[in-house]
C-alpha cells in the first residue's frame, strides 16, 4: 500500500451559523484518485477549498506529507505550491496569454529559471494538445481549451495533489470530454487527485474511491464498482436514482 499523503481529521466548517462540514475525516494515499459526489450544498466544494486554505476551517486538522498544515503556524503559500487546484470557471488571468498564465506560478512563486519552466509548460501544453495556442489570450479560447490550460497552469507547479472543483460544470457538453480525457490520463499516470464532479460515468471510470457527501458528512465511502452497483445507504441510493432518471429521460428524447 502506498503511503497516506493527506489525512483529514474531524474537519468542521461553518459559514456564520450555518454548518457546512460536520466532522469530515478521510485519508488519501499517494497516487489515489478520490471522487467526491453528493447533492448541491453538501459541502463538497467547501471541503476542497479547505484543503488549500481558501476557506479557513473551524476545527479539526489536515495533515499533508506528514505535517499538520492547519492551525496557527499554517503556511498556505507553501502548501498551495504542492496542492494545485482547478476551478469551475477556469479563472485564467485575462490580461496574460496562455504561456504567461502558466508561467506566473513557477516564475514568481517557485523562482524557477525561465527556460526550464517554459520547457515544462510546453511539455504539458503538448500533452493536452494546446501547444499551438501558447501565445493566445484566454478570450480567444473555447471553454474546454481554457479549462485544459487551467489544468496545465496548476500542473506546471509540479503539485503532489490536484484538486478539481466541478471543472466541467460550466462547459458545453461537447467540450466536457476533452477535459475529462486529460484528467483520466493524469490519473493513469499516478497523480494523486481529489475530484468533485457531477459526471457519474466519469466518476466511475476514474475513481479509486468514491466519497459520498451529504449534509456535511461522509455518508458512504467505497470503491466505484461497489458504490454504483450496490450503495449501502438509502441516501446514496436515492442520490444515484436522480441520475438514473436523468439518464432515462435523455435516452427517451434522443
Amino acid at each position: 500500500m502506498e503511503q497516506e499523503i493527506l489525512i483529514i481529521r474531524d474537519l468542521q466548517k461553518s459559514f456564520g451559523e450555518t454548518p457546512v462540514l460536520n466532522g469530515v475525516s478521510l485519508s488519501v494515499r499517494q497516487g489515489e484518485v478520490l471522487v467526491i459526489i453528493g447533492p448541491s450544498g453538501c459541502g463538497k466544494s467547501t471541503l476542497l477549498r479547505c484543503l488549500n486554505g481558501l476557506e479557513p476551517i473551524n476545527s479539526g486538522e489536515i495533515e499533508f506529507d506528514g505535517k499538520i498544515i492547519t492551525g496557527a503556524q499554517a503556511n498556505w503559500n507553501l502548501v498551495r505550491q504542492k496542492i494545485g487546484m482547478v476551478f469551475q470557471n477556469y479563472e485564467l488571468f485575462p490580461h496574460l496569454n496562455v504561456m504567461e498564465n502558466i508561467l506566473l506560478g513557477p516564475l514568481k512563486v517557485q523562482k524557477r529559471p525561465k527556460a526550464e519552466a517554459t520547457e515544462v509548460a510546453c511539455g504539458w501544453l503538448e500533452r493536452v494538445g494546446l501547444l499551438d495556442r501558447a501565445e493566445a489570450y484566454p478570450r480567444e479560447l473555447s471553454g474546454g481549451q481554457k479549462q485544459r490550460v487551467a489544468i496545465v497552469r496548476a500542473l506546471a507547479m509540479a503539485p503532489e495533489i490536484m484538486l478539481f472543483d466541478e471543472v466541467t460544470a460550466s462547459l458545453d457538453p461537447e467540450m466536457v470530454r476533452e477535459v475529462l480525457d486529460v484528467m483520466l490520463s493524469l490519473a493513469s499516470q499516478g497523480l494523486t487527485m481529489l475530484i468533485v464532479t457531477h459526471e457519474m460515468g466519469f466518476a466511475r471510470a476514474v475513481a479509486d474511491k468514491i466519497i459520498f457527501l451529504d449534509g456535511g458528512s461522509i455518508v458512504e465511502s467505497a470503491p466505484p464498482d461497489i458504490f454504483f452497483a450496490n450503495p449501502s445507504t438509502e441516501r446514496a441510493r436515492r442520490f444515484l436514482n436522480i441520475f438514473e432518471f436523468d439518464e432515462d429521460k435523455k435516452l427517451g428524447v434522443s
Partner: peptide, 27 residues
C-alpha cells in the same frame, strides 16, 4: 474584479502582494 481571480492567484501560492501586483492592478 471577480473575487475568484484573486483566489485563483492564491491557489498558485502567490502572496497577497503578488496577487495585487500581477493580477489585481494590471486588470
Amino acid at each position: 474584479l471577480p473575487v475568484h481571480q484573486k483566489e485563483s492567484g492564491r491557489a498558485l501560492g502567490l502572496t497577497e502582494i503578488q496577487v495585487s501586483l500581477y493580477i489585481v492592478i494590471p486588470q
